[in-house]
Design a protein around this nucleic acid. Structure first.
Lengths: 348, 348
DNA sequence: CTGTTAGCGCTTTCAT
DNA sequence: ATGAAAGCGCTAACAG
């Protein structure tokens, strides 16, 4: 049983109505229809004609072909958002960054699209699309960057210093790490462990920045960074057996919230009280760090603000309000949010 | 230090090179350039000419204007993905659904874009763009659906039965709920509590389906569903005080993983052993249900497969391989994943 | 092998 | 107040 509107042997392939169809139906020219439908300001049509056009358009179900409109206008009013091929939209801070982009764009006449299919079988990296601007979230493929440069499409980068963007928004991981380390040092911790990134994580400057800052802080302040800090994170229990049981760390810093949750789960399995025996702290103030028990102290990356800033700068440039003279990389502060998982080390 | 490529006082606004520019530079026609650059199969150019064209294009930094190409080809090869205005891309099962869409599209000549800015200040709901097809993930605004119908753009819906899609992919919440209930009943639970959705959640058919199925299962099997099951979820501790401490439920089902995490955290604060005193079970097999302690038993919605199926069907229809005769709503099975948070009720 | 020509569907002067 | 006409940049017949 076929749908009435779509007979299988359709003599008339359901073709979308054109501007000319509406014009013909009303006995006016296409130009007039265009002007009426676009509510052209400096133009008034006879009410009777206007009415006829509106009705005809509705009857036919006319909708303009945006491809044609974009061609003649020379722009699409679309901002493309791109990430690395491995990137998950819901992963880590990305979701917040997107929300920030949406915040900034809300009152402007732009649409924002995120590409879901980063890696293509096809050769060309840019999609069959024309963007007026782009936002790059975390290391997109080099070919994409080349393509953007090539096509003279302005772009800003979030959380990744690549290409020749018109602006670049980063987060101050060094500063955030210092907040965390000072917090632990102030509490009296002297033996620290660091649960580094998962091996599967794509390389990111935050990995080296966080680790490097922790290492140097410990050196400068005479703290002990127990072995294992430079290995990829594999498993919560193995990590704690080494770091806490064997090397007596009293505080564990995790590269991100996911690792922290795994470590916290492992602490229960091994019977290590948190924060009694071991304090726990991680980067990324994301679900579910504030809902687990104990709630986890975190270094918060303000990803939403990063998204906002990025989109705002890009829009200013696209609207011609700003010249992309120099790329001034913005570094946003990170915050320390102290919760229940950090406390002074055990007395013994 | 200004960028060499972008002198601040540019007399020549950096205009993108056109096909004609390349043609002129090579002393050939635009058509020839087009054919060479598009690697037209049934066409061979003199190697010398081809070489000249390639070089000229590279020199000028030529990239085709996709808007024009799309106009003449009459299609964009783009699939748009839309969600409700409130929807977060990283929220719940969305991320998996997107991954599934990407899976399916990978080997096809389509690009997929997700709209990040659902609610516009402008009147028109569809962006200034032309899609060849669309995938709707969770109740998009009615105006969008009208627009799609209007523009004769085929679309499929995921997890939301709306509009007149060419296909519709749903999940079998009734079946999943029965798996969960039977599991608890088999373990010997007789007093069940249900932590329903947060008030902020946008309405979704799963809310009524899950709740309704639990209610009727309890009735039919003589189980007690303790009070509070029809109220919005507010707070883990308040919920447990009522459900477990006051009404002696031995098992708690949560509408989703987020609520389950809150309830689990509250169980620690209130000193209620899980699963010793109270079993815990939730929908959505998402981070971090398998990493917390105890790992949570879940009803898994296969969102990735939903995304795959949706995209696959849509592509088949867009490629003309399938006629959208009747919309046969697909209902995908849910799975029960038993972990450590469910056990027989206490003996007393 | 390659150039010429005719549009794709719409917007926008320039006339009337 | 409205129509005619000229493209936007590219591609695809159709010639040669």
């Amino acid at each position: 049983m076929a749908r009435p509107s779509h007979p299988p042997n359709a003599d008339s392939p359901p073709k979308r109505p054109r501007l000319a169809d509406v014009a013909k139906m009303c006995g006016v020219s296409a130009a007039t229809v265009s002007r009426v439908l676009n509510q052209d300001a400096k133009f008034s049509a006879r009410p009777e004609v206007r009415q006829r056009i509106l009705e005809a358009a509705a009857t036919l179900g006319y909708a303009p072909d945006l491809t044609a409109r974009n061609l003649i206008r020379g722009k699409t009013q679309i901002i493309g958002v791109f990430g690395s091929p491995e990137m998950q939209v819901g992963e880590g801070i990305n979701n917040d960054a997107f929300a920030g982009i949406a915040d900034a764009v809300r009152d402007h006449d732009y649409d924002v699209f995120f590409e879901l299919t980063s890696h293509h079988a096809t050769d060309s990296s840019l999609p069959s699309w024309r963007f007026d601007g782009a936002i790059l979230v975390q290391a997109p493929p080099a070919t994409l960057i080349d393509d953007l440069d090539h096509r003279r499409i302005p772009y800003v980068t979030i959380n990744e210093p690549v290409g020749q963007p018109v602006a670049s928004i980063l987060t101050d991981d060094v500063g955030g790490t210092l907040l965390a380390m000072n917090h632990l040092a102030d509490l009296g911790h002297r033996r620290i462990a660091y649960a580094n990134a998962y091996p599967g994580y794509f390389r990111h400057y935050s990995i080296t920045e966080r680790h490097g800052t922790i290492v140097s802080f410990c050196q400068e302040h005479g703290l002990t960074l127990v072995p294992g800090h430079d290995a990829d994170f594999q498993d919560g229990e193995a990590f704690l057996k080494n770091a806490v049981e064997q090397h007596h760390a009293t505080a564990v810093i995790c590269y991100d919230h996911r690792i922290a949750i795994s470590v916290l789960g492992a602490s229960y399995r091994l019977g290590i009280p948190v924060p009694g025996t071991m304090s726990l702290l991680c980067y990324n103030d994301l679900f579910p760090v504030d809902r687990v028990y104990p709630a986890i102290t975190t270094v918060a990356v303000n990803a939403r603000e990063m998204g906002r800033r990025a989109a705002r700068v890009l829009i200013e440039i696209m609207d011609g309000q700003t010249q992309p003279d120099d790329v001034t990389p913005v570094r946003l502060d990170e915050n320390l949010i102290v919760r229940d998982s950090t406390a002074p080390p055990p007395a013994n």
